[in-house]
Design a protein around this nucleic acid. Structure first.
Lengths: 136, 136
DNA sequence: CGCATTGCGTAACGGTATAACGTGTGCGAT
DNA sequence: ATCGCACACGTTATACCGTTACGCAATGCG
């Protein structure tokens, strides 16, 4: 079994349910919103959600948005290179766009090296108004 | 009176107290930690802290670290150009370094323009181990 | 004066996340 | 086979983070 690719089939029941909720959703969901959506599936406590989320994030299937305290299913094309991802979050319609950019990642890596900083994880979240909402 | 420069003297009593707590601290403080530190000064409720923090952030004297749910006094040299700041957060010693980089800011601005995204605020937080802690 | 604005104090609450238990199941090593 | 271990799971309780709603006091200004 592959160590790094996690198909739906490899997930536990709870992980699948949480993944499904996020995949169905247009935008980010909070852990408690997920909990509410899964009550009919037997979910009763936050920890059931958080434990599943921890694993899904670890697998790279889900991202945590720090500035929203919420989670999104990874929509990254090909779902690879989860190192340096930037999120553009529309404050009007809540849509989240996920993007990677080599120049950006390189610049950050360079800054870290310069500072002698052993980089483990980067959080980049851009807040603003998306193209669609500006037109409206 | 200047619209953009906020010396300590211009702050209200509560704002000064909160600012003082952050300035004294080596690292980031949570709102509730600040509250506890200021109980002897008459602070009794979270709101007193949050209201002061809101203003201090607005003035650019304090930054919020989204990934920590905590706040730091601005240590930016000259304390100007609060547009695009990156934070390097050591997960071992909790020290936070604040830095700005033109190339980084430009790249982000460029990405936003490309996407037709009206950028309002950027959050960049790098987690890792600082030089000092690596040596130890 | 009348009125708007701003800061402040208090209480209550809602949202986010984890600690500390204990249970069950699969599976490799002895 | 059975012991021990790792792992997912369930439950309760609790800690931590942030806001809503209310009322009052001081200030500035037409």
């Amino acid at each position: 079994m592959n160590d790094h690719v996690h198909a739906t089939a490899e997930l536990t029941k709870n992980q699948s349910l949480v993944m499904g909720a996020l995949a169905r959703s247009d935008g980010p969901l909070s852990a408690y919103t997920i909990l509410d959506q899964l009550r009919d599936n037997g979910f009763r406590a936050p920890l059931q959600v958080y434990r599943a989320l921890d694993k899904l994030v670890e697998f790279g299937l889900v991202h945590r948005l720090e500035s929203l305290n919420a989670f999104v299913a990874c929509r990254h094309p090909g779902c690879d290179g989860h190192e340096t991802i930037a999120f553009m979050i529309c404050e009007r319609c809540r849509v989240v766009n996920e993007l990677t950019d080599g120049a950006l990642a390189n610049r950050l890596a360079h800054l870290a090296v310069d500072a002698g900083f052993a980089l483990k994880k980067t959080t980049i979240e851009l807040r603003g108004i998306c193209r669609v909402c500006q037109a409206a």
